[in-house]
């Protein structure tokens, strides 16, 4: 495949009278993992919500895996293999880990691969096996994040979107989770990641977008890499 796996062009979206995304264009899948960064409230989460069908865009086009998904429902998008792990780890507080994994394999595409994917998830997050029948609400923050990501992996993603996977985690747990995410990437699943931790973002992604005021202010492709300090300046300068 020569084109990008996901391409978003001239996308405008918002809530009510407020416009959050203003003709934004990004692509993913051609230059490795994509990292999105920029100040809070400038459209990162909104962009991801629009891509995964939770928010109907007002204008623009989203193409995934060669198909136009601009008007598609979340369900159809999940079926195609574009999986979104939302921010925060408040998935299903009263379901057990086992339930969540079963839910992850809900779409017909993922169901035949359920056993295989479950083994992969448990190999990646062995902790989940110990707590298999426990309610999600009783887990720690890190464990809940593992459940969120695990649920997404059960959907057998062709492209995985992670919205701030390490938000609010203690440093040690954060490191553990970062390693797991790198492992997922190595196993061949391309990622789109929003992340506050610069080091982690730079380690994980090769293709960076700096989002500001609902637009792409800077795009950094592999090879034309900016210096570390310049990226740090973008993080903190605005």
């Amino acid at each position: 495949m020569t084109g990008p796996m996901l391409s978003v062009s001239e996308l405008t979206a918002g809530y009510g009278r407020i416009t959050v995304l203003d003709k934004i264009s990004i692509e993913a899948g051609r230059f490795g993992n994509v990292g999105l960064f920029g100040p809070n409230g400038h459209g990162k989460t909104t962009l991801l919500r629009a891509v995964s069908g939770l928010l109907k865009p007002r204008q623009g086009r989203i193409v995934f895996d060669g198909e136009d998904i601009t008007e598609a429902t979340s369900r159809a998008i999940v079926k195609k293999g574009l999986i979104h792990v939302p921010q925060g780890n408040t998935l299903f507080p009263d379901l057990s880990i086992a339930d969540c994994m079963a839910l992850g394999a809900y779409s017909p595409r993922a169901r035949p691969l359920e056993d295989e994917n479950r083994e992969k998830v448990l190999a990646l997050f062995p902790k989940l096996r110990e707590r298999w029948r426990q309610r999600v609400a009783t887990l720690s923050g890190g464990e809940r994040q593992m459940v969120s990501i695990g649920t997404a992996l059960m959907s057998h993603p062709k492209l995985l979107i992670l919205d701030e996977p390490t938000l609010g985690l203690a440093p040690k747990i954060k490191d553990e989770l970062c390693r797991s995410v790198l492992e997922i990437s190595k196993s061949g699943v391309p990622l789109i990641v929003v992340e506050q931790d610069v080091e982690f973002l730079l380690e994980l992604s090769q293709h960076l977008y700096f989002l500001n005021h609902g637009q792409v202010e800077t795009e950094i492709k592999p090879g034309e890499s900016l210096g570390h300090s310049e990226i740090m300046a973008m993080y903190f300068g605005h």
């Binding site: 939770l54 979340s74 979104h84 939302p86 009263d94 339930d99 839910l103 992850g104 809900y106 649920t151």
Partner: peptide, 19 residues
């Protein structure tokens, strides 16, 4: 299970592909 999931979190339910 899907019905119980929807009762708890609608957006997350959509993101695992529930109708």
């Amino acid at each position: 299970l899907a019905l119980r999931a929807v009762a708890q979190n609608e957006d997350a339910s959509r993101l695992v592909g529930l109708n």
